[in-house]
Design a protein around this nucleic acid. Structure first.
Lengths: 362, 362
DNA sequence: ATGAAAGCGCTAACAT
DNA sequence: ATGTTAGCGCTTTCAT
């Protein structure tokens, strides 16, 4: 281990107000002016080799760290991408963030991520705060926003800043004229219908959709509406059950308990807004010795890691969690490079059939 | 819904290079100079009421968004806190991030979060990148860093920037002179010993610690070492089992399968580096009709939501995930306000005894 | 290949 | 209560 040479750091250096090494300091140490160092940093080939060598050692000796505030302000070029996600605790969105990060890192963009906790009001606040960084692009979740948020987004788009809505893909109605943004995700309507179709195909006629306990999870509600519509179209009975707030496993357990207690014309299949709810219900069914899927079929959404671990394994819908991030990054980079609107994409999902809806399945 | 008044946006306004509304523009619209608007934005009471009114409407009409780059550069005050976490997908660190966010938001600080994927090399890269924002404070995870990272952190501390290591609390050895940073977390050594103690107290003499599959999860390794030491001190047999990479549930299942197959002098209790591994093992034990805890006791770490859902419920160690974030925020704010080093803290954890280690327990 | 001058958008100090 | 003057640290012209 080499001896640290703090000497260079603590001695020379004309430090400004707050004790940081500036381009100036490096330049003085190298016997050139700041602009030469600046050039060296961005286009090393543009400075003579011996000058470069002196700059290199000055850089090392001072421990210079470029000030992005100043750089961005001067160049006017923003390399920040602002991202608004409902939350990060849930691995579902964290993976999307990771995908975005993976796709943008090498292109030199910095990610500014904020979580809205599913609140449109909070989304608006956070968007305002993030806009202060003058991001090169803005990524929001879903197509539902507060009026003010919408206005901000429209303004951004008009000013040429790419705006992408992720985790949704809702083709515009033919006559609609309302502002549309780039969308990268999938149709929750289609998924909701597919979930119903799967259960109907297995012969179920009395269905339920257990909706998310989060009031502002519009995508879950949308799947529920589609589920109900599909059931109705097939002439089956279907109801929506609201799940209580709090721990999702517990909520699932409770919903199952309530449903069983209801008696009368019992439901034979339940679809859930997410796998945590479904797993809770599945565990509770096991505890109550209710046969799954014989007596009651259970279908989740999200294909969380736990889903295939339970017995019976939980049928679920696997989602392009990471792909939404990488595809968004790709679309964004293209748009930024070619200064044209980012292109929308509908990404594939898949209904994974396991034991909880089909006896003998995986 | 009021008609949008885009007219004001698209008409007047001397837009600079890149079409954004500046303080200047607002000032002109309000018939004052930029500094007055600037003042109004920060200390509204310092401007006369009628002026304020004109500024307010100018602000609304133009849709002004302050440029933080410029603001921070001019004021010299950084309000950014840089945070390096191993990952965000795992809810364990996401909650800490949320805690930090909760604690810092109102104080006007912005959080710049990056995930290292448990790689010290990546930590170094990311730290370098984040330093470009000249953060007011830096938060890193754990006390293990690359030499270069360490050097950067020491430099920061020397320059008066608070540096906090979270998720660890390791009191410095008496003679040690090496650079120490503020630490907010808990002792993984203590937890490892407590995990062993719990199993030993239940009469187990042949133990195993199933280590994390992530090579650079030093805190998990440290718990393992402490676990082994405690077992050895008690005269019990203990081994460390490395878990395979990949899905943690599957890894847990595989480890359990291997252990059972080993036969000979069978292990009677296993402690795990995390609850996912432990749950995998628990589910596999159930599948193989191995009595838990009768034949084999299982102890997790992290107290994930799934732990109390399985049967038997998984004993585990509950962690101050959120508190680490809020406490760090508090410590940071104090340090920043009083310009003195942030104060370390050891936060409480608890070994939660459930059915997987104690028959009849919760 | 290097430098000088000007300015990015904002705020700190001093006026007034 | 408001305006003037400088300057944050860097990058862009435009010289040389």
């Amino acid at each position: 281990m080499p001896s640290t040479k703090n000497s260079a750091i603590s001695t020379r250096q004309a430090r400004r107000g707050h004790g940081r090494v500036t381009l100036q300091d490096v330049a003085e140490a190298a016997g050139v002016t700041s602009i030469t160092v600046s050039r060296f940093l961005r286009e090393p080939v543009m400075v003579a080799e011996d000058t470069a060598a002196r700059i290199r050692s000055a850089l090392a000796a001072t421990g210079y760290v470029p000030n992005k505030q100043a750089g961005l302000l001067a160049s006017g070029v923003g390399n920040i991408v602002a991202v608004l996600l409902p939350n990060l605790s849930n691995s579902i969105f964290a993976e999307t963030a990771q995908g975005l990060s993976d796709g943008l890192q090498d292109a030199g963009y910095e990610l500014l991520i904020a979580s809205t906790s599913y609140s449109l009001e909070r989304e608006e606040q956070l968007l305002r705060a993030l806009l202060g960084w003058h991001p090169a692009a803005v990524v929001v979740t879903g197509r539902r926003h507060s009026p003010a948020t919408l206005k901000l987004l429209v303004g951004l788009k008009a000013a040429g800043t790419p705006v992408i809505e992720i985790w949704d893909h809702h083709p515009p109605a033919p006559g609609t004229q309302r502002a549309r943004f780039t969308q990268i995700g999938f149709s929750h309507d289609e998924v909701g219908r597919a979930m119903a179709a799967h259960l109907l195909a297995a012969g179920h006629r009395r269905l339920a959709y257990v909706d998310s306990g989060v009031a502002e999870d519009y995508r879950a509600h949308e799947r529920g509406l589609a589920f109900m519509a599909a059931a109705r179209d097939a002439g089956a009975l279907a109801t929506v059950i609201a799940s209580p707030a709090g721990d999702a496993f517990d909520a699932g357990r409770q919903v199952l308990g309530d449903a069983v207690r209801a008696g009368a014309a019992p439901i034979t299949a339940m679809a859930f807004a997410n796998d945590h709810l479904a797993c809770g219900a599945l565990l509770e069914a096991t505890r109550r010795h209710i046969a799954v899927p014989g007596q009651l079929a259970l279908l989740g959404f999200g294909d969380f890691a736990i889903a295939r671990q339970l017995s019976p394994a939980l049928s679920s819908v696997s989602l392009p969690r990471h792909a939404i991030g990488t595809q968004t990054a790709r679309s964004l980079l293209d748009a930024l490079k070619l200064s044209r609107p980012a292109v929308s994409a509908s990404l594939p999902w898949a209904l994974i059939v396991r034991g909880s809806t089909q006896p003998g399945a995986g």
